[in-house]
Design a protein around this nucleic acid. Structure first.
Length: 464
RNA sequence: GUCCCCAUCGUCUAGCCUGGUCCAGGACAUCGGCCUUUCACGCCGGUAACAGGGGUUCAAAUCCCCUUGGGGACGCCA
């Protein structure tokens, strides 16, 4: 039997954003789930607005998310001949005609319709004029004026639109280039695309495209229109809502699996399950569970997912990422093995890698450059406490095994002898060694820091 | 303006197709508590929703209609 073919068809006019990434994910999952093919097509027919570096950045973002495509990438800009071939075919079969109306004239027609409270459309003036080619002339689809066109949508269900609502759309521009609707249909049909999941905003376009499919005698694919992603104010997500480009999230320290998981849950669900591995998604995803109402993008939930995946990741992998984030903060030539020992202490404490890097700073900063929270120093370093700190410093210096268990035991013993509570020295020690009042477990921290650095910091703290 | 789509806690959603098991379940966020050497993690608990109105039915979150609200489309953009 025929296998599923899906596609993602971004236009290289900007970065891959949240919404585009989600439709890419849905199409990718549908293909992978059914063992089909996932194609990638760059819609760059608008030479003015398309930028080649944008194509690369879209590819990079997809690679980051792990959305691999099959076969070669199709570029619409290289298929103009093909489009023209089909336009000519429609001209021959009487499904299209030449029109000499200027854009201004058409705009006037629309304005007139608007005045009457009707839907603005082209009047069809040249429809029966029997015009031939000519400079500046466009080719229009000779669309049916009666009846209705039905879209049997995978997510919206049956959607019917009166053909009277549609006008004779332009297929070939005055400069000879094909329009979007024509190119999309020719591409999807010739590329063998069987299922198209795309944004809600294309739903109104679909009947028009179906008309072209019919005029060309192509089989119809299945369409699925997923709702738009909204900002917290329920308006279409845009830059003013903060980060919209997928790769901005990488910069902020999100893991690709968190992004994938988070995005797929916007408009798709599988019962009460929240966490999905890539493999699970592939095996569970079908268009059946796609929701039909718009979703607000909630960064807080993405944070939670990211924190979850950070906790799950092996330290060695995170160490590499942490290194990159620390480099951005000006720390170079760090030892990955050392970072891998810091990571476990920070895994439950960081929601993003950027946050982890921030918290890791006190581990990688030079002892003499460690910044102390002076308010804390003042609060905790009383004369009495300084005395204990000095003793503890000697105790740590003489410890046989420098690990947190023996450290803890030694300190406990010291305190017990004097009938003191651990609370008395816990925060002072923490401040002395990390400079701050909040940190991972005290002894784990000291262990990772190592004897030399811990003692150096204790000495420095005592001199403050 | 015209057409199309949508409507369950603040947010993501389950349930809706195949009415009763739902005085609506989960998750994030939030609030309280526990744990505790700080900060987190974790655990326990709380607040919180079927937009409104009409039908249909013994019974409606679930089916139908209307209203309202939101979104989208009406390009020689994609």
């Amino acid at each position: 039997m025929s296998t599923i073919v899906t596609r993602f068809a971004p236009s290289p006019t900007g970065y891959l954003h949240i919404g585009g990434a989600r439709t890419a994910i849905f199409n990718w999952l549908l293909a992978r789930h059914f063992g089909g093919t996932f194609l990638l097509r760059i819609e760059d027919t608008d030479l003015q607005r398309s930028q080649s570096d944008m194509t690369q950045s879209i590819l990079d973002a997809m690679a980051w998310l792990g959305l691999d495509h099959d076969g070669e990438i199709t570029y619409q800009s290289q298929r103009f001949d093909l489009y023209n071939e089909y336009i000519d075919k429609m001209l021959e079969t009487g499904h299209a005609y030449w029109c000499s109306c200027s854009p201004e004239e058409v705009e006037a027609m629309r304005e007139q319709a608007r005045q009457k409270g009707l839907k603005p459309k082209y009047s069809g003036r040249c429809r029966e004029a029997g015009l031939g080619p000519g400079p500046g002339r466009v080719v229009r689809l000779k669309a049916p004026v009666t009846g209705a066109t039905l879209v049997d949508d995978m997510v919206k269900g049956p959607v019917s639109i009166d053909n009277a609502e549609l006008d004779d759309m332009v297929l070939r521009r005055g400069d000879g280039s094909p329009t979007y609707n024509l190119a999309v249909v020719v591409d999807d049909a010739t590329m063998g695309v069987t299922h198209i999941i795309r944004g809600d905003d294309h739903l109104n376009n679909t009947p028009r495209q179906i008309l072209i499919y019919k005029a060309l005698g192509f089989d119809l694919p299945r369409f699925g229109h997923v709702p738009m992603i909204l900002g917290p104010d329920k308006k279409k997500l845009s830059k003013r809502h903060g980060a919209t480009a997928v790769m901005e999230y990488e910069t902020e320290g999100f893991l690709p699996e968190a992004m994938l998981n988070g995005l797929v849950r916007l408009g798709w669900a599988h019962g009460d399950q929240e966490i999905f591995s890539r493999e699970e998604l592939v095996s569970l995803f079908t268009a059946d569970n796609l929701g039909s109402s718009a979703a607000v993008f909630d960064k807080a939930k993405l944070m939670w997912l990211n924190a979850h995946y950070i906790k799950e990741s092996p330290a060695s992998r995170l160490a590499v990422l942490l290194n990159a984030f620390l480099e951005r903060r000006g720390f170079n030539n760090l030892d990955l093995d050392y970072l891998a020992r810091i990571v476990p202490l920070l895994q439950p404490r960081a929601q993003t890698m950027a946050e982890m890097a921030e918290k890791a700073e006190c581990f990688v900063v030079a002892d003499e450059a460690l910044v102390y929270d002076m308010a804390a120093v003042k609060k905790f370093f009383t004369d009495d406490v300084r005395g204990h700190l000095a003793h503890l410093r000697e105790l740590l210096a003489g410890l046989c095994c420098f690990n947190h268990a023996s450290m803890e035991a030694a300190v406990a013993g010291y305190l017990e002898e004097r009938e003191l509570k651990f609370k008395l020295v816990a925060q002072p020690l923490r401040v002395a060694v990390t400079g701050a009042t909040a940190s991972p477990g005290l002894f784990e921290t000291i262990e990772v820091l190592g004897r030399e650095r811990a003692l150096a910091r204790l000495d420095r703290a005592l001199s403050l």
